[in-house]
Design a protein around this nucleic acid. Structure first.
Lengths: 345, 345
DNA sequence: TTGTATGCGTTATCAG
DNA sequence: CTGATAACGCATACAA
């Protein structure tokens, strides 16, 4: 045997060989007790445990992953790390998984297809046991192909008709519909809409819902009252200024998400408009900020934490074959009315 | 040679053996072109590239990591994933690193020592090339020990006197001092303080700064005006109610962070207090929500994105020996005055 | 119940 | 400039 093998007792981290030697058994036995496999006599089990403790042994997960083709890690892709929304999501996934000693590797897709693809490849390369993806830009075709691959996939915020069981999320179109419908119900007729980037599927679906609500109420769609913005506060503020500059009247602005709505609210107040009298505002996501604002923001609830939890439970069940407590329930968007939407009736 | 070796052309992902065979060269040569090592004749380089393309070859990073003892990954530990603050931080780290094809693995420490330790071990086990840690509960002793270990460490939000070069962050004590000093400068004498959990080092340091500001202005510290809360909106709201219930006057409340401040603001408005006349509020972090609130929140700026960037650059430089553009500048807390702090003068 | 031997897919050393 | 092969640390089929 080559003496270069790290089976000695250097200062480096202890290997399975060292604990086997110290325990007076074979490496396979150590492996068995580490992984709680099969029957190991309690006597040797004892010896192995003591040896592991002495050497402060911690299994090398990389080697383990290579040998077993399994990593105990699930990959999570979100659009942005720098966001409370996605933070809540990944946090929920992590806490569910961590209860069963599974870990997550998170990466960002930045909302464009190339970057999302790169992120997914990174996760696959890291040998993840499953992937939980909140993609926005990737095509259905690509996702369909992915779902047919070797690695289990959970898609969030998207509905793939060919793989309904892989998808968890709310109906964004219905959410958008509810938002605008509620505004109409409250007597608003001139309703502006500030959307997120339409290349993002969720943004587009929400807008579709808006249009359907308009149509159902027989309100003509006025392109001048539509602006495609980014999902950000700054972009929302800018969009409101553009709308105001047109001198076209509108009493309510429905926004693609809460961040846009916050920007609108800021800009409106800077323009000395009295809220919510002069302008009603409705958001989407029902994020924490919705209750920070003044007036508090009416918004469509997007139960992102529950969705994250459900996604985690799904992989626990199907990939690790751990039947976790609660089954995933279907999620439906709910309108949460607060002060920012004023009734005109 | 054993025929079970995955050197054939199964449906599985292509290995380096397959591309070597197809390119008509040795695996070591393939490895060289993949890693852009040494000199490879442009002719064989060509053949290898074409073989890789044909097989859609992607190196197995796990195997690579095992063999090279290097992962191109840096581990990031934050308190919570579900937070805009930490999201911004990890996002900044990621974008700096990603420019050089380095990746991050994020995990949460949940603000308690055992969990932070577990998270750090997880990252070490994943073979991270370096660790960037935002810890709150771990002791200085533990961190000192960690810094003496084999794996490069960057500590954020903490100052280890023995390892100044490993630490990046602002002076929380000074930040807390500035917050309360500004309130005093604006004529406030009865100043309540709602702190984060004192077991967290940053929370404690901010409070220390508050006490120093009081002392410097010869204002007696009144324990009744101090509440230890959680870093959350709910906790802040609850704390304000407790303060109000005492019937002790105070014209200003300084908060351990912006989330607490938002909770205070909500609760104050629910109590029909007119802001900022009836009560001044100051936060800490200068997070995005600071500009969502009404009145806009005065806060101590914590440049978390820049700190994340600096941390990323630090490991780029010292671990990967990539001299990146900007050097890390020292960060100093700045008070950002907005509308929520009212002058009494 | 325990031990032996080999593979997992790379990297890197050392010849050639 | 290129090839052969040990080593990385562990898992597991098979043998004992």
């Amino acid at each position: 045997m080559n003496k270069k093998l790290n089976h000695g007792s250097d200062s480096k981290a202890a290997t399975i060989y060292q604990v086997a030697k110290l325990a007076g058994c074979a490496v396979s036995t150590v492996s068995r007790v580490v992984n709680k496999h099969q029957n190991v006599s309690s006597k040797t089990k004892e010896k192995v445990h003591s040896a592991m403790a002495q050497l402060n042994y911690r299994p090398n997960t990389v080697a383990s992953s290579l040998a077993s083709q399994r990593s105990n890690c699930v990959g999570v892709l979100v659009s942005e790390l720098a966001s409370e929304f996605f933070g809540t999501f990944t946090g929920a996934v992590e806490s569910v998984l961590r209860e069963h000693n599974k870990h997550i590797i998170v990466t960002a897709g930045h909302g464009d297809a190339a970057s999302e693809k790169e992120g997914i490849n990174f996760l696959i390369d890291r040998n993840c046991d499953a992937l939980i993806l909140h993609v926005e830009a990737l095509s259905d075709e690509y996702l369909n192909e992915l779902c047919q691959g070797d690695i289990p996939i959970v898609i969030v915020n998207r509905e793939l008709s060919d793989f309904p069981n892989n998808c968890i999320g709310i109906d964004n179109e219905l959410g958008g519909f509810k938002a605008t419908s509620k505004a109409i119900e409250f007597g608003h007729c001139d309703i502006a809409y500030i959307s997120g980037p339409l290349k993002k599927h969720d943004a587009h679906a929400r807008w579709d819902g808006h249009l359907r609500a308009l149509a159902q109420a027989s309100i003509a769609y006025d392109p001048a009252l539509f602006i495609e913005a980014e999902f950000s506060q700054e972009s929302g503020a800018k969009a409101l200024l553009e709308l105001l500059a047109q001198n076209k009247p509108f009493s309510c602005v429905v926004c693609g998400n809460d961040e846009i709505a916050c920007g609108v609210m800021s800009a409106a107040r800077d323009a000395k408009m009295h809220l919510p009298n002069a302008l009603s505002i409705v958001g989407f996501d029902n994020s924490n900020v919705a209750s920070y604002t003044y007036p508090k923001l009416s918004s469509v609830d997007y139960p992102i934490a529950q969705i994250g939890k459900a996604a985690g439970l799904l992989v626990l069940k199907h990939v690790y074959v751990i039947e976790a407590a609660t089954a995933a329930v279907p999620f439906s968007p709910t309108f949460i009315n607060r002060a920012s939407l004023q009734s005109k009736l």
